[in-house]
Design a protein around this nucleic acid. Structure first.
Lengths: 161, 161
DNA sequence: GGCCGAATTGCAATAGTATAACATCGCAAA
DNA sequence: TTTGCGATGTTATACTATTGCAATTCGGCC
């Protein structure tokens, strides 16, 4: 499972590069405008596999340039990125993380390590189907869903965490 | 499924009464103190099957008595109720809802209607198992999980929503 | 009953997260 | 050039939650 990279040592430059490249292609295809600001926010979100808070991104943006940016600016960029499926919001953490498969819109399911905060997005059809089945049984029409699992990743457990 | 009551017409007084009664028994067994304030907050949470925000509860508390209560007071009461499993927090809404089966600690999975806001807690072993299986496959040790599904309930769909 | 320690609540301040409303800028089509 | 529109700047504010310390209440114990 390539998506478990986040829990392992790896060359992260490759992750960033690939994410940005895919984002550009995807936005080009959709005629959506990946402006410098939005691109920069996406890059910051991808700086690692830990979810980033909006104000954390804000500080990092400010650190990079002379002029301070307002919260609304970052939130708007995040809104855009979420609409394009390039970023997911983790409700349990009030934080944002890059999506490794933005090309098709989908529901995000996450494993979040409470030690290293590394977060991976899982795509389990079983989870999705089990949820759909439960919803259907209740006569409920599911539209969006959040699945966030907090625990300890293999790496941290190995280190006795 | 009795738990789907929230999506149907029903005598809600019974829900409240039962929830409070169970809470008292459960706290008595555990020697946990269900103080008047905590009991009142629980009652407010159970006023309907819609999740309540902390500040909404705060206003309602204030409306009931002469003196205004501070946010921390409500949050502490909610913390206690969550520890006892009597209330769940819905991360996607920043809101709180009464738990209909507090006796055993468990992970909450929710269906939230985006029209009437009615929310039911589902207990699907399939969902839980699918999530556990995904986590195990990733070498991940799951501890807590949030599953929140936003959609339209049968009642609202029937009404053409 | 009176005292003690712990749990609970009161109270004030502040941190953290997110949005609203309106002005301005820059690009591209008419 | 003008106009329209999307993006960004700017300011203010709303909403959610926590911290720290003082005052009070509770329950157990002498």
């Amino acid at each position: 499972m390539a998506s478990l990279l986040a829990f392992k040592r790896h060359d992260h430059r490759h992750c960033i590069e690939q994410a940005l490249q895919e984002a550009e292609q995807l936005c080009a295809r959709r005629e959506a405008r990946l402006t410098p600001l939005r691109r920069r926010v996406l890059e910051l979100v991808w700086q690692n596999h830990q979810p980033s808070g909006a104000y954390q991104l804000l500080d990092q943006l400010a650190a990079g340039s002379a002029s301070r940016v307002a919260p609304a600016t970052v939130y708007r960029a995040l809104d855009f990125l979420q609409e394009q499926g390039l970023v997911h919001r983790l409700a349990s953490l009030n934080a944002y993380i890059g999506c490794p498969h933005a090309e098709r819109h989908h529901r995000g399911h996450f494993l979040i390590c409470r030690h290293c905060q590394a977060t991976v997005e899982i795509t389990s059809s079983q989870v999705a189907e089990a949820i759909d089945a439960s919803a259907r049984a209740a006569g409920f029409e599911a539209e969006e869903e959040w699945v966030e699992v907090l625990g300890v990743c293999a790496g941290c457990r190995g280190r006795g965490q």
